[in-house]
């Protein structure tokens, strides 16, 4: 008999539940049907004064049970504190499957839990399924995203992390008689070894947030330099869009990692994605292939990016992009 699917309900630094929690819940409801309707559960670590708010947010979202631990120290995520609490909680809940968002926090926390519980963890899954009646089959891209691997765990709980936006949240309320259970976790012997000295929030003014942008102008190795990226910025500004980069562009230091699209970066789904000087390794395309329209500009007509785009332009980005900017400027004047 299945013991249920547990989702780590991540609270962000800004004190809201991460959207990935609801995406995972929707997927978990789907998986639970293949597991004799085993319960879908959440685990939340929260400050005591906010717990009621989170309970309301989790209610009617597919969760049969919500386990919570309230402690004043949970205001800020710290690996050692959260791992200590979550490991004890997961042992107590003893789920069949544990799903965690592949966010900064989730990717930091998940391997601490899986190692402590001596179980398997599959990172950044792009699909989850149940096979052989009860096994979690976690599919993830590997080898630079070019090979898909279906990974199973011999140990329990079977753990996986999933990036935000890979699954969709439920379109309507998933009505449940959600039961709330407070866990008594002993943190009395917790000795902090990490101290957060400062946090500087990103100014979103410089480059738009790529999560919400409707138009993304992205650059890869072919953009070569900072100058190349300033061209992208000018084009994006003209279009009211945001600038993003491939992993190679990030490795070349042309753009900071928070604007990286792809398997080790973000998954984006804008209305229009313009890939400039990006060859189109699967590492990158898994993060953008769900965009509504994809345009690729690349001088190599055999670049794999042309296999997944709607419109292609074979040409030198340093000639094409300035022409596009000029064209848009001319329209502004007329």
């Amino acid at each position: 008999m299945s013991k249920g699917i547990l989702i780590y309900a991540e609270v962000t630094r800004e004190d809201y539940l991460h959207t990935v929690v609801f995406e995972l819940a929707n997927k978990a409801v789907d998986l639970s049907r293949k597991l004799d309707n085993s319960p879908v559960m959440a685990l939340i670590l929260s400050k005591p004064n906010l717990i009621n708010e989170y309970k309301e947010a989790l209610r009617n979202n597919g969760f049969d049970k919500v386990f919570y631990i309230a402690d004043d120290r949970f205001g800020e995520y710290k690996t050692d504190l959260f791992a200590k609490a979550a490991i004890q909680a997961v042992k107590e809940i003893d789920p069949e499957i544990l799903l965690i968002g592949a966010t900064n926090q989730g990717r930091d926390l998940a391997p601490r839990i899986s190692t402590a519980l001596h179980t398997g963890l599959t990172a950044d899954c792009t699909d989850l399924d149940i096979i052989d009646n009860s096994k979690l089959a976690a599919t993830r891209p590997t080898f630079g995203g070019q090979l898909m691997a279906v990974i199973l765990s011999k140990k329990y709980p079977q753990m996986a992390t999933v990036r935000p936006k890979v699954f969709k949240p439920a379109q309507e309320d998933l009505k449940r008689d959600t039961v709330f259970i407070k866990l008594g976790i002993d943190l009395s012997d917790y000795k902090p070894c990490v101290e957060i000295l400062e946090f500087v929030k990103n100014s979103s003014s410089e480059i738009n947030d790529i999560d919400s942008a409707e138009i993304i102008v992205a650059g890869g190795r072919g953009m070569q330099s900072q100058e190349g990226f300033s061209l992208l910025k000018r084009l994006a500004d003209k279009l009211g869009g945001a600038v993003a980069g491939s992993r190679t562009a990030v490795e070349m230091g042309l753009i900071s990692p928070e604007y990286q699209v792809g398997q080790t970066g973000k998954t984006v789904t804008p209305k229009l994605y313009i890939a400039c000087g990006i060859s189109g390794a699967l590492q990158h395309t898994v993060g953008m292939s769900s965009s509504k329209t994809i345009i690729a500009i690349n001088k190599d007509k055999n670049a794999p990016i042309f296999d997944i785009c709607d419109y292609g332009f074979v040409g030198d980005v340093f000639e094409v992009i300035p022409q596009l900017i000029e064209g848009l400027e001319a329209k502004d004047l007329s």
Binding site: S114, H118, T119, G120, L121, T122, I131, A137, P141, T142, G145, Q146, L147, M148, A149, V150, I151, L152, S153, K154, K155, L239, L272, I274, L282, T285, V286, S289, T293, I295, A296, I297, F306, D307, I308, C309, D310, Y311, G312, F313, V314, V320, Q323, L324, G327, L328
Partner: peptide, 30 residues
């Protein structure tokens, strides 16, 4: 604790790329 159940070449998205050959058309599409 984990093992690979199967591995396969990542599927390519089935779209027909429409190639454009001048910037004017490209701008229109954008």
């Amino acid at each position: 604790p984990t093992y690979v159940n199967k591995a396969y070449r990542a599927p390519q998205k089935e779209v027909e790329c429409k190639f454009l050959d001048n910037c004017g058309d490209l701008l229109q599409v954008i």
